[in-house]
């Protein structure tokens, strides 16, 4: 079976480097699946899960902000933050989801709604990836 190298890189260091048979990521325009031999592409990523399919297993990573670069032999995901499902700190994600929800419901003028909402989405994304329901 043909495979393609996937790198997930963040400013704090590489997160993932392995051969997979298919990558599925959430880009700004929708889900995008990449198989080996894909045409060189660049696409911005949303907050979402990246599915890394191997022959008989699938790994998950939570990614937020950044973009995806596809070259014929290699896929690179550059994100401001990225964690594999196994590295996610669940209690921290739940805590920040609660905090963001509280901020959204507080209904105060000085709350930056956009940021709270983004924080909530990131936290929910982490929780979903951790629980494997994507």
């Amino acid at each position: 079976m043909k495979t393609i190298t996937v790198n997930i890189v963040t400013p704090d260091g590489p997160v993932y480097d392995s051969e997979v048979s298919m990558v599925i990521a959430v880009t700004a325009t929708g889900e995008m699946g990449i198989l080996p031999g894909h045409i060189p592409t660049v696409a911005p990523l949303g907050i979402g899960a990246v599915r890394l399919k191997k022959e008989n297993s699938t790994e998950l990573a939570a990614v937020s902000g950044g973009f995806l670069e596809v070259r014929p032999d290699k896929v690179t995901i550059l994100a401001q933050s990225a964690e594999l499902a196994t590295d996610i700190d669940l209690s921290r994600a739940q805590e920040s989801a609660r905090r963001a929800e509280a901020m959204l419901q507080a209904n105060k003028d000085d709350v930056d709604y956009q940021r709270a909402e983004l924080a909530l989405r990131r936290a929910k994304n982490r929780i979903n990836v951790y629980e494997g329901n994507v």
Partner: peptide
């Protein structure tokens, strides 16, 4: 590269 959706957006 191909740009999805467009070079400006990227």
């Amino acid at each position: 590269y191909e740009f999805d959706p467009s070079a400006e957006a990227i």
